[in-house]
Amino acid sequence: MASISETQTQKGLASLFGRGGKPMKPSTREAWYGYLLASPWIIGFVVFTVGPMLASLVIGMYRTDFLTETTFVGFRWYQNVLSDSLVRKALINTAIFSFTVVPINTALALLIAVMLNQGIRLQSFWRTVYYLPSVVSGVAVSLLWKWLYQPDIGLLNSILGPMLRPFDIDPPRWIFSTEWALPSLIIMAFWGAGGAMLIYLAGLRGIPTSLYEAAEIDGASSFRRFFAVTLPLLTPTIFFNVVLNIIGSWQVFTQAMVMTRGGPNNATLTMVLHIYNTGFQNFYFGYASAQAWFLFVIVLIFVILALRSASSWVHYERV
């Protein structure tokens, strides 16, 4: 071990740093600089990540509003999480959101990227059209979609209404109905598929044309070329995005808060919204902490499952 680090040091910059005065051992000197320059992250990691995570576990054992009351309750909140029907509702809603948005958005982003990569005219224009919705997000977009979903005079039903009328079907009341409120948030999320599309488009451009030529000589059809060449080479990029999307989708908050406030009848209550309500509206910070840990463990499980699955479908071959 020692010999390895010594060779590394010699290859590194260290040998050149020891100048002037009584030279410090080069490797030590470089190491000190290394820690010094990495210190913003080290400090931030301790103060804003590890510390709070551990503190969160402990806070979860108290009944506290951080002002008047602090009572030790042990693992009661953690047990509560498992039997609380609202938490279960939030969990199911968020799971449905995540398990529909992640796969559909990934497929949609891939589809758009592949379409735009067919030597289409005005490619950068179309790229902007598809990408722009993912640049804007937050409250303004939620307000916009709330307006689009307006059942009587909104854009969606003004298109759907006439289409459904011959079948004598009324268009859905979107965010105002318990069945359609969650699907409304899901459909709205598809509008942001452009972010991943941009990454896939860049990935597609990185695939060497020689591979396609080889496949063409072998007589592969364009479908086969896509599934045998394009898709496998894109899997590392897809994988990275899917993992980030899983994490992001489990943290959905703004839409649910601004458009429906979790309603109607908790149809759009998400985990983060419920944590927010528990802690910052009802001031059960201990319970909110316990719920946050619960969410953390769930997301961790899905991320680990995704990482585990990687070896069976992610193609790690150097091009």
Partner: peptide
């Protein structure tokens, strides 16, 4: 660890950082 924190859902530190800032 840096890579691991990238995939950390950040709301697990919502309440304790709030306490810290209080």
């Amino acid at each position: 660890v840096v890579l691991a924190t990238m995939i950390l859902p950040e709301h697990v530190r919502l309440v304790p950082t709030y306490l810290l800032f209080v």
